[in-house]
Design a protein around this nucleic acid. Structure first.
Lengths: 241, 241
DNA sequence: CCTTTTATCTTTACATCGTAAAGATGAGAT
DNA sequence: ATCTCATCTTTACGATGTAAAGATAAAAGG
């Protein structure tokens, strides 16, 4: 759509751009680093993130390329570079957006729950529901290897997500979860809850649970299976536990 | 820069202009001998799979490209096409290899266990141990989107893996797990075990558990955390369960 | 034995991607 | 108004997946 000026670069001038002058890097960020204000074309940074999210949910993770995002935003293919550095930068910032959406969804779900049981199930259900509603975003957050957690925005958003989980577990155990120290049982409880819901989500998104769902009583949904997973009595020894 | 022997990927030095008879090549797969690859490789398909595994464990998932595999095997970059079709084909067959290794490791681990508790823990431990020992293979098996489960080899190997898990759960529950029908509780038990260990493994490989491990008593290993996850008593309401 | 066929491997070609670097543009500062 | 420089565009390059055509050797058929 739009203008598809796919000029295969045969160039007309053909002047060799290879300069022998050193031309060192153009000083990436002059220490001030307040590039928040939108300049002449509006807020391209934000536009690119929204375009990226659109491309991701439309074309999947494999379709999410720097050039596709630039195309979607209607700018040249090299425009994102200045705002995100490279693909890792864009993916990391997009993942941060995802984590914020994710955290908001979980918080909202916890608020609307009334009974203790509903409160306990609200969080994992919201977790899976977000992943199902935004599989691309979830993939970026948890499947991509190319994320840079040293980026403050991503680190912060992901940390908040983890804190919310730890906090929920603490509530359920009626314990205070310390900021910098955990007992083995506390750590195990957190890891168990996280592993279970994360693993379930990944398997579900990958279609790996179809095998199970197909063998269950007619019409059993993934949500129902999750609920049973979290509440059904454990028969036998282990696991789990 | 300049022209310093660009080393394009023509692996073979020059072309043998004409076969001057020389000697008839044994060419029947020297079984390990370094090959002066003849035009027709003995068993290129197998060689490519082994090359792929080497590349994967050496350079990670992002380094695993069709061309890199061909380079590693010493053939032209288009050679794999005839044996695997496309990249999906190669990845799928390699994942099948991984699943077979994986199944063998699990079976072996279960055999060596004696006590019921050890038997119950052997499987999840072997699961995580395989992933830690072969992170690349595990990534291919469970992280890649680009797998074609309609390929018989992959489908079979993955199916066997699932069957082994279901069987183990059935043992623990002292129930017969039917081939084509599951109760909700049975399905929940299988999904719980699989989700837990798979989620744990993914989080571990992604370094997402460092946060927890660092807060645990000095020197607590991932294996110890896993064990606690599977055996520690559950305090509080849920999850899980 | 010689020719033909066929499966296998190589070359060549092309679109796309990420990224680097130089050129163009326009907003804000001097 | 001119200058400066962040922003955006153009151009270029190497790498990748894939398709198609060419080359080669093993097998098949006379």
């Amino acid at each position: 759509m739009g203008k598809s000026e796919i000029r295969t670069e045969t160039a007309r001038g053909a002047r060799t751009p290879r300069k022998t002058s050193s031309a060192t890097r153009p000083a990436r960020r002059p220490a001030g680093a307040k590039t928040e204000t939108p300049y002449h074309h509006g807020d391209l940074r934000e536009a690119l993130l929204q375009a990226a999210e659109r491309v991701l949910e439309r074309d999947g993770l494999s379709g999410l390329t720097l050039r596709a995002v630039a195309r979607e935003a209607g700018v040249s293919h090299a425009a994102p570079t200045h705002h995100f550095g490279d693909l890792t930068g864009l993916l990391s910032e997009l993942a941060a957006v995802g984590f914020r959406q994710f955290n908001a969804a979980m918080a909202s779900a916890c608020d609307t729950a009334t009974t203790p049981l509903a409160r306990a199930l609200a969080r994992p259900k919201a977790y899976v529901a977000y992943a199902q509603a935004h599989p691309g975003m979830y993939s970026i957050m948890f499947r991509t290897e190319r994320l840079d957690y040293s980026r403050p925005s991503l680190n912060e958003a992901a940390e908040a997500s983890f804190a919310g989980l730890a906090n929920a577990i603490g509530m359920m155990r009626q314990e205070q979860i310390s900021e910098d120290s955990l007992t083995l049982n506390q750590g195990a409880a957190i890891a168990r809850a996280w592993s279970m819901v994360h693993g379930f989500t990944m398997l579900l998104l990958d279609g790996r649970l179809e095998d199970i769902l197909g063998r269950l009583p007619e019409g059993t949904t993934a949500e129902r299976l999750l609920e049973a997973m979290l509440t059904a009595p454990v028969t036998g020894k282990l696991p789990g536990p």
